[in-house]
Amino acid sequence: MTILKTRPLLITAGAAITLLALAGCVPNNASSTDAAGAITVDSSADDCAVSATTATSGTLTFSVTNSGDQVTEFYLLADDGLRIIGEVENVGPGISRDLVVQAQPGDYFTVCKPGMVGDGIGRASFTVTGDKVQLAGDVQDQVDQAAVNYVAYVKDQVGQLVTGTQTFLDAYLAGDDQKARDLYAITRANYERIEPVAESFGDLDPKIDFREADVAEGDEWTGWHRIEKDLFPPAAADNGGVTYVPLTAAERQDYAAKLTTDTQALYDAVNASDYTVTIDAISNGAIGLMEEVASGKITGEEEIWSHTDLWDFQANLEGAKVAYEGVRDIVEAKDPELVKKLDDQFGSLQTLLAEYGNLDDGFTYYNDLTPDQVKQLADGVNALGEPLSQLTATLVG
């Protein structure tokens, strides 16, 4: 992770939005009845029942009814299961609302989120066939909807981070260190995908994610890496020659409470009514995430105690790709060759990283990599970083 940013990557109030569409969504309006020809969605307490699994490209309407007892959300996700194509939120019990999207051919996922937190339920594949269609609406409509979609992605990741962090801390405070160690890297993935967001909110990232080496003398070290060191205690030789002293139960409670508070503060910040993003924030966020990989993950410095750097690498790469794909259409119109390079390099780096595992099954620990393997990964990061560094200039130029 980086210690200092020259300017914020995401801003929260009064931002001028100049971003083209992620997927050409059009505004969603509240509705008490299904639109003609709508795909119906029943969001219940334990399922997300969608009436169709395929549709033809063009304008699609999902009529979402909440038959559960909690306020719910419905998402149409891209084929990576992360990027949000469209969402309808705050659907109260017994209420129906419509999600209208201009859908291009491709593979998608549908998912509901009762309570509007966590991973969601009833995730299912959804396929759009047919020919590519022109995006609906004028440029400003596309700009506005694209910003809404990226903010929705950020909210989704932070919402999952809140619930995942609580599960992790429950195990940690219960003294179930093995379960906490198992949850550590996968829970952090939600944070690593949107780390530039946290960096934009002043001291939240230092509180949540500073490494021991980043902390100024006299400042308190808190957050994930403080707990990491306690869960993966170093030998004296790796700790400046000093035998590590485990945290007491009271100290665990204190650091857990602070991480909970700071994570909630991040959640509150991205859910503020005036939170939005700009075009350079999206593209610079993609660039910044790959810089995180180059400066911390590929060197093994980020997760120095747990050696779970490749989990972070994967999450950073996913977050960078989501951000890039959000502005891909406008880049392609200006510089199709750059888009071809970026598409190829994102794919190549993902293929290379997949040789060492995945988030579901785990990765090779950093300290088990050979120098040649580290160099190969570093070369892949550099190969992507070169064209990615041109993204913002192309967008705003």
Rank of each mutant, 00 (worst) to 15 (best):
R97V: 13
R193E: 07
I95W: 06
I194H: 00
G81Q: 01
A286E: 01
N90P: 05
L359H: 06
V270M: 03
T276V: 13
L161T: 08
G159S: 10
D280P: 02
A354R: 05
Q350S: 13
K179W: 09
V215H: 03
L22V: 15
L353Y: 08
D42K: 00
A174Q: 07
R7I: 13
G159F: 11
D372I: 11
V100A: 07
S51N: 01
D205E: 07
F62C: 06
S57A: 15
I3T: 14
T260W: 07
A354T: 11
H225R: 06
K334E: 00
A265M: 05
A30E: 15
V91T: 03
G300S: 06
G397K: 02
T222G: 06
I208D: 02
R123L: 14
A393Y: 02
D156F: 12
Y255W: 14
L20E: 14
R193S: 00
S63I: 09
Q160N: 09
D177K: 06
L317N: 08
A174T: 08
R97Q: 13
G130V: 10
A281K: 01
D344M: 10
T54K: 12
T2P: 02
A281L: 09
S348Y: 04
T392Y: 03
A256L: 09
A55Y: 12
E251Y: 05
F74P: 02
C112F: 07
N190C: 14
Q253K: 15
Q350T: 15
G24E: 08
L352T: 12
D80P: 07
K321R: 15
T187M: 07
A378I: 07
A45K: 05
G92M: 14
F232D: 03
D361Q: 13
T263C: 10
G68L: 02
A378F: 11
A78C: 06
V331L: 12
S283C: 07
Y324H: 00
H225E: 12
R252T: 10
W224H: 00
G92W: 08
I298W: 03
A49W: 09
I298E: 05
P93G: 08
D156E: 12
D344C: 13
